[in-house]
């Protein structure tokens, strides 16, 4: 499966593990994932920026019919998080005990979890998931 391309996942490690993105030196726009060019300014001068992982919940759903590789985690909570820097990301929501408390606007913190695995023999891929701060 294309999700388990080793080199591609290696390329994404810092983004997934540490929320490394970047920030345009001209317009100061934050980018996550990081970009090579700020297309607003048409420049390639961007500074690396590590997002704090603090954010708020924008919207969520509970996925019952999951894609391959996520079967064991089903049903899983998934949503859109707005990081405190203003950038939005999609992420699984972990540590949900009572989903009636998942109200848009609640604070979230990114935590480190296993994202998926390539069967029992392949590589493991790790990254961020959002933990509601309730």
């Amino acid at each position: 499966m294309s999700r388990n391309l080793v080199a591609e996942n290696w390329r994404l490690e810092r983004s997934r593990y540490l929320l490394v993105g970047n920030k345009c030196t001209e317009c100061e726009k934050y980018y996550f994932p990081n970009v090579q060019i700020c297309t607003d300014c048409n420049i390639s001068k961007l500074d690396e920026y590590v997002f704090s992982g603090k954010g708020k919940l924008i919207e969520w759903t509970k996925i019952y019919e999951v894609a391959k590789g996520f079967e064991l985690f089903a049903p899983l909570y998934y949503g859109i998080i707005e990081l405190e820097e203003g950038v939005r990301v999609a992420a699984q929501i972990t540590e949900v005990t009572d989903d009636t408390k998942l109200i848009p606007g609640i604070k979230t913190q990114m935590v480190f979890r296993k994202l998926f695995e390539d069967g029992s023999q392949g590589v493991l891929t790790y990254g961020f998931k959002a933990e509601p701060q309730i």
Binding site: F112, R113, Y126, K129
Partner: peptide, 13 residues
């Protein structure tokens, strides 16, 4: 551990 936790994730946390 949760289904998405293992020695690596617990160590990182």
């Amino acid at each position: 551990p949760a289904l998405d936790e293992d020695t690596i994730t617990i160590s990182v946390m």
